[in-house]
Simulated scan of single mutants.
Amino acid sequence: MENFESVVRAEFGPKNTFLNTASSGLLPARTVAALSEAARVRAEGRPLTSLHTDVEESRAAFARLAGVPVTRVAAGPSVAAHTALIAASLPAGAEVLTAEDDFASVVNPFHVRGDLKVRAVPLERLAESVRPGTALVAVSAAQSADGRIADLGAVREAARTHGARTCVDWSQAAGWLPLAADDFDYTVSICFKWLLGPHGAAFLVVPEDFGGLTPLLAGWVAGERPWDSCYGPVTELAHSARRFDVSPALFSYAGLRHSLALVEELGVDAVHAHDLALADRFRAGLASLGREPLPAPGSAIVSVPGLGRLQPELSRAGIEVSDRAGNLRASFHLYNTTADVDRLLDVLSG
C-alpha cells in the first residue's frame, strides 16, 4: 500500500476535493506529458507513426485488463457507437432486455431502430426477466445514477439458459471493478472515467466469431492492411476485431496508453480495495449524520437522495460531486484519501 500511495502522489495533484470520477477521471501526470508530446509531434511536422502505435498499445492494455486476446478488441469513439453496431445486427422484432433508467448510450441505439422490442425492468429483476425469445440483454455493470452493481453472474446464466446474448457496459466500473469480458458476448467501455484517459476513446470486445456484427462504420483503418486500404472499397477487412474500428482520435490514445499503464501498475484489485474503503467510510459518515444513501453495496459510487441541490454550493467550496436526478453523487477513486471523505462530511454536517 505504501508503494500504491507513493505512485499515486507522483501522478496526481488536484487543486480541489475531487469526488466526481463517475463524470470524468483526473488525468495522471504521465498522461498529460504524453498529450503534450503528441501535440508537439503534430506541431513540428514529425511522422505520426508513434501516435498510431499508441492506439495499438492502448488496445493491448485494455485487452489485458479485460482478460481477452487483443484480437477481440475494437477501438472507437464512444459506447453509443459500439452499441449501435450491436443494435444493427439484430433482426426486426428481436427483444432486447434492459434495466430501467440505465445510461442512454447503453439503451438508446436499440430504441432508435424502431423495429425492436425493447423491454425495461428493474435492475434487480433483470436476470429473472430473461425469457425464451429474448435476443439480447444489455446493461451497465455499475449504474451511472446511483452506483448499483448488476448481478452479472445471474444475468449471464439466465441469458445462456434462454439462448440470449449479453452486452455489458463497463464505463462506470472498468478500472476499479475486476473485469472478465470473456463472460459476456459483448463488452463496451469508455475510458475517460475510472480508466483515467482523455475523452474520445472507447473499446468494444466481441466474440471470436464477431457475434454476427457487420462493420458498418468501417473505413481504411478497418482493413487488414490499413495503408493499402485508403482508396476505394476495402478489399480485405481486418481478420481481428479491428474491422470494427473507427478512425482513432490519435491524441486520445497517445494519452490513454499511459493511463492504462498506470492502472495496470497499481492493479485493479488494489484500486478496488482502496475505492471501496473510501466509499464505505462515506456511507458510515452519512449514517452518523442521519442520512441514508441509495442502496449500492460494494460500489465506489454513493448517491444521497435529496442533496443534489447542494452541488453548486459544494463546488464553490472546492468539492466536486454530481447532481443526478436530485441525488448528490460522490465517487471515490485511487487519488482520493480519507481526508477527502471527511471534508465532504464536514461540509454536509455544517
Rank of each mutant, 00 (worst) to 15 (best):
N3K: 11
N3C: 06
A10S: 14
S24C: 09
G25C: 09
R30G: 00
T31S: 13
V32F: 00
S50M: 12
L51S: 07
D54A: 15
E57A: 15
S58T: 04
F62Y: 13
A63M: 06
V68K: 01
A75W: 08
G76I: 06
P77G: 14
V79I: 14
A87F: 01
A88C: 05
S89W: 06
A92W: 06
A94P: 00
L97T: 00
T98F: 07
D102E: 12
F103K: 11
A104H: 12
V106A: 10
N108L: 13
P109Q: 13
R113P: 01
V118A: 11
A120F: 07
P122V: 09
R131K: 11
S140E: 10
A142M: 14
G163W: 13
A164C: 08
T166K: 08
D169P: 01
Q172L: 11
G175R: 02
L177A: 04
P178S: 12
P178A: 10
A180V: 14
F184C: 12
S189D: 00
K193E: 01
G197Y: 02
G197K: 01
A202E: 03
F203W: 12
G223K: 03
P226D: 11
D228Y: 15
D228A: 15
S240E: 08
A241T: 10
P248N: 05
A249E: 10
L260S: 00
L262I: 04
E265P: 04
G267I: 05
D269C: 05
H274M: 01
L286D: 01
G290P: 03
R291Q: 06
L294T: 08
S299F: 03
I301F: 14
I301V: 15
V304F: 07
S315Y: 13
V321E: 02
R324D: 03
S331Y: 00
V341A: 05
G350L: 06
